[in-house]
């Protein structure tokens, strides 16, 4: 299994604040990877760097082995098939559901966008389908999270990076989002979740990476005893 996305020696600071230090990471093609860690560990920064949304201070991002670091900082890697769903969802609240989804395929010909729109609506919950012309802000939290996944799918990405999908959602809604992500993974999409809450991620992911204080402290399988020990140390100390 070759790596779709890889980080090589990634380091980053925000105004002097250490965010990431020497991150080495391979995301294998077609897998479901969970990057776990407490808040402030550097997960969001890593998500944005891997998706090319911000340029790392140090290191390289490889997409199928090719160095794409130079492309980072503007529109990211969305045109290369890497979609980012940022923390807090960042839907366009004042725009309609339809407009939000259409923007996911921004730059594609109208026919392509409309064809994709139909496919994506099929994956959306009833309330989203019924509310095509409602402002996105009027949807519930769970519907908004589904919609933002839909917006990413409109780009027909090879990889989806999703930051804290469980944030602010009741467990039952989080489960629905994860079911959708697992379905995508079965369809061949590479999925990477960046999570603070380990529950759902442990249930759906193929592999786990624990990140703490800007560094990777553990990598392993889901059911390993070592994974649980690593999580416990990472979150609650010794």
């Amino acid at each position: 299994m070759s790596a779709l996305l890889a980080a090589r020696g990634i380091g980053h600071r925000y105004q002097g604040v250490l965010a990431l230090n020497d991150i080495e990471l391979d995301v294998p093609k077609g897998t479901f990877m969970a990057i776990l860690g407490p808040n402030g560990a550097g997960k969001s920064t890593l998500a944005q760097i891997l998706a090319g949304a911000i340029r790392p201070a140090k290191g390289q991002i490889l997409l199928e082995g090719a160095d794409v670091t130079a492309r980072a900082g503007r529109q990211g890697l969305i045109r290369n098939g890497v979609a980012l769903i940022p923390e807090g969802r960042r839907l366009f609240g004042q725009l309609t559901v339809d407009e939000n989804l259409m923007l996911g395929a921004y730059g594609q010909p109208r026919a392509v966008r409309e064809a994709r729109l139909e496919k994506v609506y099929a994956l959306m919950p009833e309330a989203v389908r019924q509310g095509k012309h409602r402002a996105a802000v009027t949807l519930s939290g769970g519907e908004q999270q589904m919609l933002v996944v839909g917006r990413a799918l409109m780009a027909e990405p090879r990889a989806i990076l999703i930051d804290e999908p469980s944030l602010g959602l009741a467990p039952i809604l989080t489960a629905k989002v994860y079911d959708l992500l697992s379905g995508l993974r079965r369809g061949g999409v590479t999925v990477v979740v960046f999570e603070q809450l380990a529950t759902h991620a442990l249930r759906h992911a193929d592999s786990i990476v624990v990140i703490n204080q800007g560094e990777i402290s553990f990598r392993g399988g889901v059911d390993d005893e070592a994974t649980h020990e690593a999580l416990r140390t990472g979150y609650l100390g010794h």
Partner: peptide, 19 residues
Amino acid sequence: VLRAYFGEDAVDARKVMTA
């Protein structure tokens, strides 16, 4: 507390605790 950080799954929590 373990549940809050690692999930509502008692199994998971126990695993973490006994690890």
